[in-house]
């Protein structure tokens, strides 16, 4: 069973969330008394994506590529600089806090660090009940039974509801965060690195839980992560980000079978596989250098400064195109969109 076959209906339907040309710039302030803005960090620079009901879209990239900022800008936790986020036909950017609040019932977030995202002074019951109280959805006996049901749903023992977060392990805390996010019965969950703070044996339980919840509740996830193994396991489609851009987007199988952007290819080849024989035989594509500063990204294609293809394969006139022209995210005959002038599908795994 492949991920795409699992949800054939997802592709045809209207997207539940449609993001178009989203940008988020952070000002760089000068050192002087007036602290004028002297530049901008282009954390997210023109991201477009669609999320369909019941779908899991993985958003991957290395640190600083803008994946978390994208999630936060979609959630309106950090207002976007420009662009549009349409959720079920309603534009979210520019909404006031008050107007946004009822919409938050449908779109919730789970944060990376289960130690920082739960109030240490509240017992678990209060943490999970808080959204229900704020939105005036339940009280009294009903509230108690809903919180119990939520804790059971995420695989925690409801009898532990009066304990504090410090009494729980990392994996259990992340489950509490998920229960809180599910309290309002959202349609979309933004999961910002939900398992990367956890040890592998614990991480697997949370991944299985997220899969079960998607199947049982028909949720759609925007699954933000840096670990491509985890993303492959859980996602239906995957978008790869680099320096504020999506550089390739495809169904999970397509991305792993036919990676077309040189960055995706390097990323896939860099990840170690826990299999000694395969690992010894693998050839790595080793990128040179580090990610350039998003305050001053390279002209044309942003990846060209580290691109193995640019450095070793392309002719001088081809290189000029990389330097002068921003490659659009479009299908260049590889079956899915990739933002490379010379996109070409190769097998890496």
């Amino acid at each position: 069973m492949t991920a795409t076959e699992a949800r054939p209906e997802a592709a045809g339907r209207e997207p539940i969330l449609k993001v178009t040309d989203l940008t988020k710039y952070f000002p760089i302030k000068g050192r002087g008394l007036i602290r004028r803005t002297v530049g901008q960090v282009k954390a997210v620079d023109g991201v477009s994506l669609e999320l369909h009901p019941g779908e899991i879209l993985g958003l991957v990239g290395e640190s600083g590529c803008g994946k978390s900022t994208t999630g936060r800008a979609i959630m309106h936790l950090q207002p976007a600089t420009s662009g549009s986020v349409v959720f079920q036909g309603r534009e979210l950017t520019g909404l006031s806090r008050g107007k946004m609040r009822p919409l938050r019932r449908d779109i919730q977030i789970v944060f990376q660090d289960p130690y920082a995202s739960l109030n240490p002074r509240l017992p678990v019951f209060d943490i999970v009940a808080e959204p229900l109280i704020i939105h005036k959805l339940a009280k009294g006996e009903e509230l108690r039974s809903r919180v119990r049901a939520l804790l059971e749903l995420v695989g925690l023992n409801p009898e532990h509801a009066n304990r504090f977060p410090s009494e729980f392990s990392g994996g259990q805390r992340q489950r509490i965060g998920i229960a809180r996010a599910l309290a309002l019965e959202p349609k979309v969950l933004v999961l910002d690195e939900p398992v990367s703070a956890l040890d592998v044996s614990i991480q697997a339980g949370v991944i299985n839980l997220l899969e079960d919840l998607r199947d049982r509740l028909g949720l759609a996830y925007l699954f933000i992560a840096h670990d491509l193994s985890v993303v492959r396991h859980i996602s239906d489609r995957i978008a790869v980000m680099y320096l504020g851009w999506i550089i390739e987007i495809a169904t999970t199988d397509d991305l792993f079978d036919k990676p077309s952007h040189p960055y995706t290819q390097a990323l896939l080849s860099a990840i170690p596989i826990p299999d000694p024989r395969r690992e010894r035989e693998r050839k790595r594509i080793i990128l040179t250098g580090d990610v350039p500063s998003p305050a001053n990204p390279p002209s044309g294609c942003r990846f060209r400064t580290r691109c193995q293809k640019f450095a070793n394969v392309l002719s001088e006139s081809q290189q000029t195109k990389c330097i002068d022209e921003e490659p659009a995210l479009e299908d260049r005959g590889t079956g899915h969109p990739a933002a490379c002038h010379y996109a070409e599908a190769i097998r890496v795994l």
């Binding site: 991920a3 994996g171 044996s201 614990i202 991480q203 697997a204 991944i207 299985n208 396991h233 596989i273």
Partner: peptide, 24 residues
């Protein structure tokens, strides 16, 4: 065995359930 089973594999083509290790 549990540790290996709880790792999602980059090279998996068949979707397999992960096997978490219970408890801490």
């Amino acid at each position: 065995l549990g540790l290996l089973g709880s790792l999602p594999r980059l090279d998996q083509t068949e979707k397999q359930k992960l096997t978490p290790i219970k408890g801490s």
